[in-house]
Deep mutational scan, measured.
Amino acid sequence: EEKRQVKQVAKEKLLEQSPNSKVQVRRVQKQGNTIRVELELRTNGKKENYTVEVERQGNTWTVKRITRT
């Protein structure tokens, strides 16, 4: 359940930055209360990979860091 929520948060964050792209989740890793989500962003056939680190704060998820990989 929490992985599902985190995927959603990570996707939304990337789509905010580039709204007309397609996002696909590649991998989800958990480390303590930080969850790392690896995503693939496609814009006009151009692929970019991103890693989004999401942290739990109380009962909400906040995006800590977005890295292009």
Rank of each mutant, 00 (worst) to 15 (best):
T62N: 10
Q8P: 03
Q57L: 12
Q8D: 09
V9W: 02
E53Y: 12
P19I: 05
R68H: 13
V25M: 02
V52Q: 00
K13Q: 06
E53Q: 05
I66G: 00
E1V: 06
Q57T: 13
G32S: 04
N44C: 07
G58Q: 05
K64R: 11
K7V: 15
V63L: 03
V9Y: 04
R56Y: 11
E2A: 09
E40Q: 10
T69K: 09
T34Y: 10
G58K: 06
I35F: 15
V37N: 00
K13G: 07
L41R: 03
K22E: 14
E38D: 11
T67Y: 13
T51L: 12
A10Q: 01
V28K: 01
K46N: 11
L15N: 03
K11A: 10
Q24P: 00
T51E: 10
T34N: 06
R4H: 12
R4D: 13
T60I: 13
V6L: 07
K22F: 12
I66T: 05
Q57V: 15
R65N: 11
R68A: 08
R36S: 10
T62L: 14
V63M: 01
Q5Y: 08
V9A: 07
R56G: 05
L39R: 00
N59G: 13
N33H: 06
T43L: 11
E1S: 08
Q17M: 15
R27D: 05
K64M: 13
Q24W: 14
T60N: 15
N33I: 05
I35A: 08
K64P: 01
V28I: 13
R42I: 15
K30Q: 14
V6H: 03
V54H: 00
K3M: 15
R26I: 15
K64L: 14
L15M: 11
I35Q: 02
K47C: 08
R26T: 13
T51F: 09
G45M: 05
L39K: 00
V6D: 02
K7R: 12
R26E: 03
R68C: 06
N49Q: 12
V23A: 08
K64G: 04
K11I: 15
T67V: 12
T34A: 08
E1D: 05
T43I: 12
W61H: 07
R68K: 12
E16D: 05
L14T: 02
R68F: 06
E12A: 15
G58V: 03
N33Q: 09
V54E: 00
N44Y: 07
K3P: 04
E1T: 07
K3H: 14
R56A: 06
K22C: 08
V9G: 01
I66Q: 01
S21C: 06
Q29V: 14
N33L: 08
N49L: 15
V23E: 01
G32V: 03
N33R: 08
K64A: 10
E55H: 09
K3W: 15
K47Q: 08
V25A: 05
W61N: 04
Q31K: 11
N49F: 14
Q29R: 13
S18T: 07
N44T: 07
V54T: 01
Q8R: 12
N20I: 05
V28F: 09
Q31A: 08
T62H: 14
K13V: 13
E12G: 07
Y50R: 00
V28C: 06
T69R: 11
V6I: 14
V23W: 03
S18Y: 15
R56W: 15
T51Y: 10
K47S: 12
E55A: 06
R56I: 07
R42D: 15
T67D: 07
E53F: 11
K22R: 11
E48F: 07
K46S: 10
L39T: 02
G45H: 07
E12K: 14
E12T: 09
V37S: 00
T43W: 09
I66L: 04
V25C: 04
R36A: 07
R65A: 15
E1Y: 02
L14F: 04
K11V: 15
E16W: 03
R27I: 07
V63W: 01
L14Y: 01
E55P: 00
G45S: 10
K11M: 14
P19F: 03
V23H: 01
N20H: 11
R68M: 11
R27Q: 07
N20P: 02
V28S: 02
G45Y: 05
K3G: 09
R27P: 01
T51N: 06
E1C: 08
T67P: 00
Q8G: 05
Y50M: 03
K13I: 13
V54R: 00
V25K: 01
N49I: 14
L39P: 00
K11E: 09
E1F: 03
V28T: 04
K64Q: 06
Q57C: 08
T69M: 13
W61M: 09
P19V: 05
R4M: 13
Y50S: 00
K30T: 13
K22D: 11
Q5K: 09
T51C: 08
Q24A: 12
L15G: 03
Q57N: 12
K46G: 08
T43N: 12
L14D: 01
T62A: 12
R65E: 12
K47E: 05
E1W: 02
P19E: 03
K22T: 14
R42E: 14
P19Q: 04
E38R: 07
G45P: 01
V23K: 01
E2W: 07
K3S: 13
N44K: 10
S18D: 05
V52I: 11
R65K: 14
T60C: 06
K7C: 11
E12W: 02
N59A: 09
V52E: 00
E40G: 02
T34K: 07
E53N: 03
K11F: 06
K22M: 11
L14I: 09
V28M: 13
E2V: 07
T34P: 02
S21L: 04
W61P: 03
K46V: 13
K46C: 09
V23P: 03
T60W: 13
E55S: 08
A10R: 01
G58S: 04
K47Y: 11
E12P: 01
T51A: 09
V54M: 12
L41G: 02
I35Y: 15
V37H: 00
Y50V: 09
K46W: 10
K46E: 08
K22G: 05
G32W: 04
V63C: 03
V28W: 09
K11N: 02
Q31N: 11
Q57S: 12
Q29A: 10
Q57F: 12
E12V: 06
V63D: 00
R36G: 02
R4Q: 11
Q17D: 08
Q31C: 11
Q29Y: 15
N59F: 05
K13T: 10
P19L: 03
V54F: 13
L15A: 04
G32L: 04
Q24N: 11
T34W: 08
R36P: 00
K22L: 14
V52R: 00
T67E: 10
R26V: 15
K13F: 11
R42Y: 15
Q24V: 15
E40L: 10
V54L: 13
E40M: 08
L14R: 02
E38H: 13
L15D: 02
K30H: 13
K30N: 10
Y50P: 00
V6Q: 04
K7Q: 13
G58M: 04
Q29M: 13
V54S: 00
Q17C: 10
Q29E: 13
L14N: 02
Q29P: 00
E2S: 08
Q17A: 10
Q24D: 05
G32I: 02
L39N: 00
E16G: 06
V25P: 02
E38F: 15
N59L: 08
K11Q: 08
R36C: 07
R42V: 15
Q24L: 14
G45V: 03
E38W: 11
V9T: 05
Q31Y: 14
I66H: 00
Q31H: 15
S18N: 15
T62V: 14
S21N: 03
A10T: 04
V25G: 01
K7L: 14
Q8H: 09
T69N: 12
R42S: 13
K46L: 09
R26G: 06
T43R: 07
R65V: 08
G45K: 07
A10P: 01
E16S: 08
K7P: 04
G58A: 04
E2N: 08
R26S: 07
N20R: 09
T34V: 14
W61Y: 14
T67G: 03
S18I: 12
K13L: 06
Q5E: 10
G58D: 10
R27C: 07
R27H: 10
K30R: 12
N33C: 05
T67C: 08
R56L: 12
E53P: 00
V9H: 05
L14P: 01
E38C: 07
E48A: 07
V54P: 00
R4I: 07
R68W: 03
E12Q: 12
V63T: 02
A10Y: 01
E16A: 11
R65Y: 09
K30C: 09
V6G: 09
Q57P: 01
L39V: 13
S21V: 07
R56T: 03
R27L: 09
E12H: 09
G58P: 01
V52S: 00
V23S: 01
N49R: 13
K64D: 01
V28Y: 13
R68V: 07
N59R: 06
K11L: 12
W61S: 04
Q5V: 11
Q29W: 14
E53A: 04
K46R: 12
T34C: 07
Q31V: 14
T62W: 14
T34E: 04
G32R: 03
R4A: 12
V25S: 01
E16L: 12
S18K: 11
N59Q: 10
N49H: 13
Q57A: 11
V37W: 01
Q5H: 09
R65P: 01
E53H: 06
L15V: 05
G58L: 04
W61I: 14
Q17F: 14
R56P: 04
P19W: 02
A10W: 01
T34G: 07
N33V: 08
V28D: 01
Q5D: 10
S18R: 10
K7S: 15
